[in-house]
Amino acid sequence: MTHQDPPLFYTAHLFVCTNRRPDDHRRGSCAARGSERLRDYMKARAKELGIPNIRVNAAGCLDRCEFGPALVIYPEGVWYRPTSVEDVEEILQVHVIGGGRVARLMLTEKDVPPPKG
Rank of each mutant, 00 (worst) to 15 (best):
V112G: 04
R27T: 11
R104F: 04
R45V: 08
Y80F: 09
P7A: 08
E90M: 09
P75V: 07
L49G: 06
L107R: 00
V94P: 08
G100T: 04
V96A: 06
G34P: 00
G100C: 07
R45H: 12
S35R: 02
T2N: 14
D87N: 09
L14K: 07
P69G: 05
H13N: 11
F67T: 00
C61K: 06
N57G: 09
Q4I: 14
A70R: 00
V56C: 09
G28S: 01
A70W: 04
T2V: 14
P52F: 02
C61A: 08
V72K: 04
A103N: 12
P113E: 13
E66T: 05
R33W: 04
Q4Y: 12
L49D: 04
R33N: 07
V72W: 03
F9V: 15
K116S: 13
V78K: 10
L8G: 10
N57Q: 14
D40F: 04
E66N: 05
V102W: 01
A12L: 11
N57E: 14
L38M: 04
T83C: 12
P7G: 05
K43A: 13
N53F: 10
R26A: 12
A44Y: 05
R33Q: 09
H25A: 11
Y10V: 08
L14F: 11
Y74A: 09
G99K: 04
V56H: 03
L107Y: 00
H25T: 03
R45E: 15
L107A: 00
T11Q: 15
E86S: 13
H25P: 01
P6H: 08
D23T: 14
P75S: 05
E89G: 11
C61V: 02
I91G: 02
H3D: 13
Q93I: 10
P114Q: 09
E36W: 10
P52T: 01
W79F: 04
G100L: 01
I97W: 05
G98R: 07
E66L: 09
E76I: 07
A32Y: 09
R101K: 15
A46S: 11
A12V: 11
V16P: 05
G77W: 02
A32T: 12
R101P: 06
P114G: 05
T18S: 07
L8T: 12
D111M: 00
L107D: 00
K43Q: 15
T18V: 15
R45W: 07
T108R: 02
G28T: 03
P113R: 10
M42H: 03
G34Q: 01
K116T: 13
G98A: 08
N19V: 01
V112I: 12
A12G: 10
K110D: 15
Y74D: 11
T83Q: 15
L38I: 05
P75W: 01
E48D: 12
C17T: 02
R55N: 13
K47F: 12
L38R: 03
H25Q: 01
R55E: 14
Y41H: 12
L92T: 05
N53K: 14
P52G: 06
T83R: 14
G50A: 06
A31T: 08
R104N: 08
T18A: 05
R26C: 08
A31G: 09
R39V: 13
V72C: 05
R45L: 10
W79C: 02
W79M: 02
Y80A: 02
